[in-house]
Design a protein around this nucleic acid. Structure first.
Lengths: 135, 135
DNA sequence: GGAAGTTACATGCATGTGCATCAGATGTCC
DNA sequence: GGACATCTGATGCACATGCATGTAACTTCC
């Protein structure tokens, strides 16, 4: 699994990590700011909407949503709470398992996502194109 | 600056962003946890120590430190405050410009960094090697 | 020299996050 | 059927962060 580690391999690894760190910091900051200013949602909120749109069924259980995101269960719970407060998703009970909660995109949520996605792509195009492009 | 944007270019960009997000989340989480458990410092604290060691002079002004890090000025101020509380750095006044603060590595700070760095490299080796490796 | 503007750092405050825990529902084993 | 473990999601709490602002020191311009 882990290949042999030369001295140059170590510094190469550190360099890669710094690249990732730089890229993430720049892009996530710009993205968060743009989404917040233009659409009143943060990156985490957008990610949730995005997952819901991607899912063919439009509604997902919290648990499945959590698995698809880089967010703790508690953070997800609060993010969905914010989305619900803003009328972008609904939380529905699940008849089969009354512990589970279905998160369902509303019409407003779908519309907000559509508009936010174009902002996201613009930001990515601006900040991810200019990357060191070590690919 | 921004090149023409094809449909496939857009989804490619989103894919790249998701890769960065996944990589950052996984590694930063593992790194933060490992550093905290083993050495009692977080990622930001380690980054500050790392910058100080990298700088040949061992002490940097807050302002220069801030420029080298992905952290707001206020966050840096508090990070340095934590490092000072733990005896890993000292804050020294600057005679030439009495607004400025020099941040200086202590012996304990240098030692902590040395040990923490090996943890960092182990974590990077474990989590950054196995990456999709799209390079 | 003195007023106005700028710079460097600290701090009050609001917010988002993770951890630990709680409450309710389901599953398991006897 | 009933006790116990497990699972799902919400919540109290501590903490790190960013923004706006405060304080002190430097700079500029008159």
């Amino acid at each position: 699994m882990v290949r042999a580690m030369t001295e140059t391999g170590e510094t190469e690894l550190v360099r890669r990590w710094r690249d990732v760190l730089a890229c993430y910091s720049t892009v996530s900051c710009a993205l968060d700011r743009a989404l917040q200013e233009t659409h009143g949602i943060g990156m985490s909120e957008f990610e949730v909407l995005d997952r819901l749109v991607d899912a063919s069924c439009d509604d997902l259980r919290m648990h499945d949503l959590a698995g698809a995101m880089y967010l703790s269960q508690s953070a997800l719970s609060r993010t969905v709470a914010r989305l619900e407060r803003d009328g972008l998703v609904e939380r529905c009970l699940c008849a089969e398992d009354r512990r589970a909660i279905f998160v369902k995109l509303t019409a407003a949520g779908r519309e907000r996502h559509t508009r936010a996605r174009s902002t996201q792509r613009a930001v990515l195009a601006e900040h991810l194109m200019a990357e060191p492009a070590r690919a």
